[in-house]
Nucleic acid binder design. Structure first.
Length: 267
DNA sequence: CAACTAATAT
DNA sequence: AATATTAGTT
């Protein structure tokens, strides 16, 4: 296998996420409790958005909704600090879309958990979150391949609720052939549904990342993108359209806490 | 050793 | 069923 890396690379650089596709979705998965537990500065703590941006405060208390008397194991509910478990991640359609976009932009070949995670740049999203999801997504793709092309596309919500929610880029269904390169089948039609966003996009056409010079040579599939730290928080100010960048934690019937991203006005 | 993937566990 | 965690490879 020979690599003409130089080829895909420049294209890749060129095709970096557009506003409509990836950029504007900078969100946080870090719950207040988590931030505290891990001693993480919540990235928004000094954010230039004076308005509605405060995450709702932590009802830190006991996760178990007062059914058990909680004074058995010594530490009464309050300070397990470092030994806290991360809440289950919930893959919302928005989050999944971002995932798919990232994979699409990377090409199947480079779409591995770490790079996907970096490209998604969702704060708090871990590599294993992505890995797990990727595994499932791949299975989904394989399952799709074996089916008659005439059926299903469009209205089969019974099959894989989540995965059906985002269009599968055509090249995913074929072979991983990163050489011949792919073009984004995505047309920013979202404008039709959200005129406001169109305005925003129209203003910022040519999204790109500020200054991407050259980074490490794409040796055997190992490359690094300096600008893609996921602390890269970018605030999109929109007049009259308050961005809902909030994280909401819910509680399932079992008492497990889960994290859900709110839609930012996309889709 | 770090990261990937498949398998398995919750 | 959806996500996490482990285990075996690369």
């Amino acid at each position: 296998m020979k690599e003409d890396d130089s080829n895909w690379f420049s294209k890749w650089e060129d095709e970096l996420p557009s506003q409509e596709d990836l950029m504007p979705l900078s969100q946080t998965l870090i719950t207040p409790d988590l931030a505290i537990a891990f001693d993480i500065r919540t990235p928004n703590s000094h954010t230039p958005t004076p308005l509605n941006n405060h995450l709702h405060l932590p009802p830190i208390s006991t996760p178990s909704s007062g059914e058990f008397d909680s004074s058995e194991l010594g530490a009464s509910g309050d300070e397990p600090a470092r030994t806290l478990k991360r809440p289950r991640l919930v893959w919302t359609p928005q989050l999944h879309k971002r995932f798919v976009d990232a994979v699409a932009h990377l090409g199947i070949k480079n779409a591995v958990p770490k790079t996907i995670m970096q490209l998604m740049s969702v704060d708090g999203l871990t590599r294993e979150n992505v890995a797990s999801h990727l595994q499932k997504y791949r299975l989904y793709l394989k399952r799709m391949q074996g089916l008659s092309p005439g059926a299903g596309s469009g209205g089969d919500p019974a099959t894989d609720h989540l995965f059906a929610s985002s269009p599968v880029p055509a090249h995913f269904l074929h072979q991983g052939r990163p050489n011949s390169d792919h073009f984004l089948p995505y047309v920013p039609v979202a404008a039709l549904q959200h005129p406001q966003q169109m305005a925003a996009v129209a203003g910022h056409l040519q999204p790109r990342y500020g200054q991407i010079g050259h980074f490490g040579s794409p040796r055997n599939g190992q490359f690094e993108h300096p600008l893609l730290s996921r602390q890269n928080q970018q605030v999109v100010h929109r007049v009259g359209a308050p961005v809902h960048n909030s994280v909401d934690d819910l509680e399932s019937a079992n008492g497990r806490k889960v994290l859900t991203l709110f839609p930012t006005g996309d889709d």
